[in-house]
Design a binder for these strands. Sequence first.
DNA 1: GTAATAGTGTCTCTGAGACAATATGAT
DNA 2: ATCATATTGTCTCAGAGACACTATTAC
Lengths: 234, 234
Amino acid sequence: MPRSSEEKSAYLHTVDLCVLRYCRDAHELQILLIQRDAEPFAAHWALPGIVVNGSTVDLTLDDAVRRLRTSKVGMDLAYIEQVGTVGDAFRDPRCWSSSTFYLAIVSDTATPSEHQRFFPLSEVASAAVKLPFDHNQLVSACQERLLSKSMYSSLPLMFLGTEFSAPEAVTIFSLVLGRPVLKTSMRQRLLKMSEAGYLEETGRKKQGEGGRPQATLENLQPASLYLFDRSFLD
Amino acid sequence: MPRSSEEKSAYLHTVDLCVLRYCRDAHELQILLIQRDAEPFAAHWALPGIVVNGSTVDLTLDDAVRRLRTSKVGMDLAYIEQVGTVGDAFRDPRCWSSSTFYLAIVSDTATPSEHQRFFPLSEVASAAVKLPFDHNQLVSACQERLLSKSMYSSLPLMFLGTEFSAPEAVTIFSLVLGRPVLKTSMRQRLLKMSEAGYLEETGRKKQGEGGRPQATLENLQPASLYLFDRSFLD
DNA sequence: GTAATAGTGTCTCTGAGACAATATGAT
DNA sequence: ATCATATTGTCTCAGAGACACTATTAC
């Protein structure tokens, strides 16, 4: 073990990603974990992350995130947002370390590669599935951010890709918020978004689980969030 | 100049604070800056900040913030919240550096010490008053956070201390949001907060600028935010 | 009394919650 | 036709915006 290089900079600053997706089959949110190939915690499942200090390959934090997405995630991100930064002397057994962590969403159903796997978000956030470092806490913080932001924005639609239906929107909002959402409220919101130029009816339909087919909408601004002026109540 | 110590760790991670207060006389929000005593930018006015890597005096980031408050701010903080982390190769002329920055609010009218001074927030956020590093941008980000969070929470009340009146609440909300706020809407919100146990009528009164005296309210939970279920519209 | 500001009452309007009523496909 | 789900319509309710009206102090 290269003890000397550790002493050179007894400090680590990493960027870590909570990459989430919606699995229709399991009807749950899932988080992407990767199997670590280096110590500490080699072979453990953990958040994809890279070290940003100690090298000059990245010019900015955002560059570091891009490098992380390319090298370890390998999927297009429909959304990404910085959630926070934690740091202390204990979280990494090697030294004092900080982590700047992000919430990201993938909409396509990209198949994970060999050392990648999707886990149920709820089990990871609740630490039923234990991750190394303080990664469970980071995941929990991202889940909270997702929940709070889903109260007043179109964020959950990021899970659905560019073409989706009203019933799908109801489903994903209910799942994210952890409580039933009335389809009538959802439609009202989708109508608002359409008037604001965020959505457009495609004229196409897709088949749900039996019953009448669902009219689909196209997301004209898949990169931007729409902010509703009232929160979902509880 | 200790060139050797810089080479030891060509990376800096700092914690920086945007400490805001409400100045009744000037009727404006102000930000605390301190005069730097070391290079780079010695004698320039900048955000209070400390380096968190390269030493082990702090056990956590929060400890570092506490040390910063004690050593360079010296005032009680009514509120503090992490806003974000930026990092790149350019912001500090010495090396690659990151800053984790916080929005903080002081309610008491503590007089600044010799190397401290309050500047108008608007001028600093707009870079009419230029700060070293990317501190103007950090201030701007904190201002945006303050504004967005003031749309749907009781955050602006943090500026007023534990005893305040409804007209004062109207004033501070109007100032923070940058637009008039109706006293009737404000009173409705204060009523909601009272019902939720956050506020209580004191029975005392205070004199405003002539006219009828103002009944005062006591903030029973000065450390916690109350979240309204609707935003102020615009 | 007047001036000036504090505090109350009432109306409209928007959007969420609830739920009934109707529409459209598969079988 | 029947079933299952999609879509529309209607009602209530909470809270913001607006503004008129009353109350309380100083002078």
